[in-house]
């Protein structure tokens, strides 16, 4: 068996090819017990493929995947014993009601916890009596989320789980992730939205084109903590007075740049002294990070 400190997920140099396309290209992923791990990458980076390999639904072309120390391809049933999964694109049985699908999926895992099931249906404001063919994307997502959370698991694999949810439902979802995390479960949360990962995750792994770009705690990945400035009504003269700004873009009287957290105070002082007509400050988007930090060749 595995010891408490061994990684729950340990994937090394995973490769998965479909004909000439390389969906995964030597991808590494390590997730420690009890952490909420963000799995970040743009669309088509290989996040869903990785999760399917971790579930033993597809076999990697090369490389090794271990979940709870088990090879998910060789022992899918033992591996799945303690896993709850929410796929990226939830497809349901049109003639079954939402309630029936939830009972089916939890039943196949060993049965739901009645109290949890009731609370989840309540919190997600979900109507379990409607036929699945009448559900919108958000409601189909709720079916998969309720089924995943209605039975305690040691590992939750969530593939872009908040897609289609409105902000209120997103906060219900975040509360559930925190609840299972407090209970000691491990969560792997794939997303292409940086802010979602920032709110929930202890550590993140960033992938691009099937390859791990970097991995670490949010504090370690300082560039994820950059602040993006967009200033109107100024000129390049302002930039000269600013210390260590990154990713500078200028367009007429418009200036954009990113600033490290430690330099924020200085930058704000300089801006306060300058004559500007407009200012917006935001966290950087994943797209801009890929553009600036990871050397994405294509221009966004």
């Amino acid at each position: 068996m595995t010891s408490a400190s061994d990684p729950v997920i340990d994937a090394t140099r995973l490769v998965k090819t479909y004909g000439r396309t390389r969906a995964l290209d030597a991808l590494d992923l390590r997730v420690r017990p009890g952490e909420v791990h963000g799995f970040l990458g743009p669309n088509g980076a290989g996040k869903s493929t990785t999760l399917r390999v971790l579930l033993g639904l597809i076999r990697p072309t090369s490389g090794t995947a271990r979940v709870f120390g088990l090879d998910p391809w060789r022992e899918p049933v033992r591996t799945h014993q303690n896993i709850a999964y929410v796929p990226g694109d939830v497809s349901l049985w049109p003639s079954l009601s939402g309630g029936e699908v939830i009972d089916l999926l939890t039943g196949l895992r060993g049965g739901s916890e009645e109290r949890l099931r009731r609370e989840l249906i309540d919190e997600f404001e979900f109507d379990p009596r409607r036929k699945a063919r009448t559900y919108s994307k958000g409601n189909r997502q709720k079916v998969a989320l309720i089924a995943a959370f209605a039975r305690p698991a040691q590992l939750y694999l969530l593939d872009e789980p908040s897609a289609g949810l409105d902000p209120v439902m997103e906060s219900v979802f975040r509360r559930q992730v925190r609840r299972v995390s407090d209970d000691g479960a491990t969560v792997l949360l794939s997303s292409h939205i940086l802010s979602e990962v920032e709110q929930l995750c202890d550590r993140v792994t960033i992938i691009r084109s099937g390859r791990t770009v970097e991995s670490g705690t949010l504090a370690e990945l300082r560039h994820l903590k950059l602040t993006h400035f967009r200033i109107e009504g100024t000129d390049a003269g302002l930039l000269a007075a600013l210390p260590r700004v990154q990713n500078v873009l200028t367009d007429g009287d418009l200036v954009e740049f990113d600033v490290d957290a430690s330099d924020l105070a200085t930058v704000l002082d300089v801006i306060a002294a300058a004559r500007i007509s407009g200012l917006s400050v935001s966290p950087p988007s994943l797209e801009s990070l890929f553009l600036s930090h990871y050397g994405e060749s294509k221009v966004l």
Binding site: L55, L57, V77, H80, V90, S91, W93, L105, L157
Partner: peptide
């Protein structure tokens, strides 16, 4: 994609 939901169970 429905088989995926079923076969990720135990």
């Amino acid at each position: 994609g429905r088989a995926e939901l079923l076969l990720s169970t135990s």
